[in-house]
Computed example of a mutant assay.
Amino acid sequence: MITVLFMLPQVSPVTWQSFDYAPVAVLVVLGFAATWWLASARHWFLDPDHGRTLSRETARAGAPDPSDP
């Protein structure tokens, strides 16, 4: 909420001299984050019932504990 309030224009009417670039910067960061998530990160975080997750957990259950001598 406070971020939205700080991004509101400070003067009216808004001119190029009084334009606040914070909303533009926020949109750039959100756009980059959304693109990165769509391209790559959504494949890292799987549903616990997903087949790859279940097979990985099954393999871990059968593997020896790394702290065992």
Rank of each mutant, 00 (worst) to 15 (best):
residue 52 R to H: 00
residue 52 R to Q: 04
residue 59 A to H: 07
residue 22 A to Y: 13
residue 68 D to S: 04
residue 63 A to V: 03
residue 15 T to Q: 07
residue 13 P to A: 08
residue 1 M to Q: 07
residue 69 P to C: 02
residue 63 A to H: 02
residue 32 F to H: 05
residue 42 R to C: 10
residue 24 V to I: 15
residue 23 P to R: 10
residue 23 P to Q: 11
residue 6 F to M: 11
residue 55 S to W: 01
residue 40 S to P: 00
residue 28 V to C: 10
residue 8 L to P: 07
residue 8 L to T: 13
residue 35 T to H: 02
residue 5 L to I: 14
residue 26 V to Y: 13
residue 8 L to E: 15
residue 31 G to A: 08
residue 43 H to F: 15
residue 18 S to G: 07
residue 11 V to C: 01
residue 38 L to G: 09
residue 44 W to P: 00
residue 41 A to N: 02
residue 37 W to E: 06
residue 20 D to T: 07
residue 5 L to E: 15
residue 37 W to A: 06
residue 42 R to W: 12
residue 55 S to K: 03
residue 36 W to M: 12
residue 22 A to C: 12
residue 32 F to D: 11
residue 30 L to F: 07
residue 26 V to I: 11
residue 61 A to D: 12
residue 51 G to A: 14
residue 4 V to E: 10
residue 25 A to T: 14
residue 54 L to M: 02
residue 36 W to P: 04
residue 22 A to T: 10
residue 61 A to T: 08
residue 43 H to L: 08
residue 48 P to Q: 06
residue 53 T to R: 03
residue 31 G to I: 07
residue 2 I to R: 04
residue 34 A to G: 10
residue 65 D to F: 09
residue 49 D to N: 14
residue 41 A to Q: 05
residue 40 S to L: 10
residue 56 R to C: 05
residue 38 L to H: 09
residue 4 V to T: 04
residue 20 D to R: 13
residue 10 Q to G: 14
residue 25 A to I: 11
residue 9 P to D: 09
residue 7 M to T: 15
residue 61 A to R: 05
residue 37 W to K: 01
residue 38 L to P: 00
residue 58 T to D: 12
residue 42 R to V: 01
residue 45 F to A: 01
residue 24 V to H: 13
residue 28 V to N: 09
residue 61 A to F: 08
residue 69 P to I: 02
residue 63 A to T: 04
residue 25 A to N: 11
residue 47 D to V: 05
residue 63 A to P: 09
residue 53 T to W: 00
residue 16 W to V: 03
residue 33 A to P: 02
residue 25 A to S: 13
residue 15 T to K: 06
residue 48 P to D: 04
residue 7 M to L: 12
residue 48 P to G: 08
residue 48 P to Y: 03
residue 45 F to S: 00
residue 50 H to R: 00
residue 32 F to E: 12
residue 33 A to R: 02
residue 38 L to M: 11
residue 18 S to F: 05
residue 12 S to F: 12
residue 62 G to T: 03
residue 28 V to G: 14
residue 53 T to C: 03
residue 18 S to V: 06
residue 41 A to R: 02
residue 60 R to F: 04
residue 62 G to K: 09
residue 40 S to W: 08
residue 29 V to H: 11
residue 45 F to R: 05
residue 63 A to E: 07
residue 29 V to G: 10
residue 41 A to Y: 08
residue 20 D to G: 12
residue 53 T to D: 04
residue 8 L to F: 14
residue 44 W to C: 06
